[in-house]
């Protein structure tokens, strides 16, 4: 059970949050101009890596804000959380 540092509210228990999958996958601005393969890449393909991963999280039972998290999936260490639209503090 993580303790998550919501960029808006501070440290809270994991039960208040929900995970929304991989971060930094931008919805294409002009979907109609994409091929089936390009659209499928956006729609279905996710990395699910073992190691440092960028994730979307929502403070569902709190401020309801979405934000991003850098988490190592091999040991659950959270390296950083940051607001939507901000650049990741870690590469």
């Amino acid at each position: 059970m993580f303790i998550i540092n919501c960029p808006y509210c501070g440290k809270r228990d994991q039960v208040e949050f929900s995970c929304g999958g991989e971060a930094h996958i931008e919805r294409p601005k002009q979907p109609t101009e994409l091929s089936d393969d390009q659209w499928a890449e956006y729609l279905f393909m996710r990395k699910n890596i073992k190691g440092v991963q960028f994730e979307r999280w929502n403070h569902t039972h709190g401020c309801r804000k979405w934000f991003n998290m850098v988490r190592d999936t091999s040991n659950d260490k959270i390296h950083a959380t940051y607001k939507m639209g901000e650049k990741p503090p870690i590469k």
Binding site: G20, E26, R27, N58, T60, K65, W66, M84, G85
Partner: peptide, 13 residues
């Protein structure tokens, strides 16, 4: 509501 909030906050701020 959650889905709409998601789009508003992340794709169409």
């Amino acid at each position: 509501l959650s889905k709409l909030e998601d789009y508003l906050q992340t794709e169409w701020p």
